[in-house]
Amino acid sequence: MNNAETILIIDDEVQIRRLLEITLSANGYKISEAATGRDGLIHAATVHPVLIILDLGLPDSDGIEILKKLREWYLKPIIILSVRSSEDDIIRALDNGANDYLTKPFRTGELLARIRVAIRQSLGSSDDPLLSFGNLTIDQASHTVRKKDVLLKLTSTEYSLLVLLAKNEGRVLTHQFILKEIWGMGYQEQTQYLRVFMAQLRKKVEDDPAKPTLLNTESGIGYRFRG
């Protein structure tokens, strides 16, 4: 049996599961459902889903705990779908290995888009050193960025920041994560650096820096690159 396109839904709310099943089936995915964390773990191990949609408020255990257990061996994308909407909860989930986070109520269109991005990413980053998004091209071999074939003058930090976000296209990267990756340990609290560089980067990369399309702000959490 080909389980390549199976998505596992771990959620105790029947209505949400039904909604997801209808929506996702209509979009060509196979669905596996679990109402408890325990069942979820068993299903994840048996049906080999390409992606897991996980609720945080499960009857038998905290979703974060399930997330941690899953992440011990499950490497494919996990999207959190929860009513918990505080920044703390979101950051905690992302820091514990969730690829994305959507709060209920959600738009099914949005969910489908996130699923697609997450699956595409998990299929492996191509070895192609050339990343292109619309009119923007990043050449990792020569460390150059072109927009509409015009070479952009980026500082090395701006370049690293852009590549980090672009490589994680569609995924929210928390402030702390970005700061650690670009500036190293000990800079996690220096969010002002990030703000300043992000503002610079937008001016150079975006068509209209006031309405960014590539470098999106996730309020209070981090940034997301949308190709």
Binding site: R195, A210, K211, S219
Partner: peptide
Amino acid sequence: DWCDVHDLANNVAETLESELKHFKLLT
């Protein structure tokens, strides 16, 4: 936390995009 107020304006404009269709939001 440190904040670039442009982000603020952008986010609001984005989340209310459909409601703002018939208005001109000048920032």
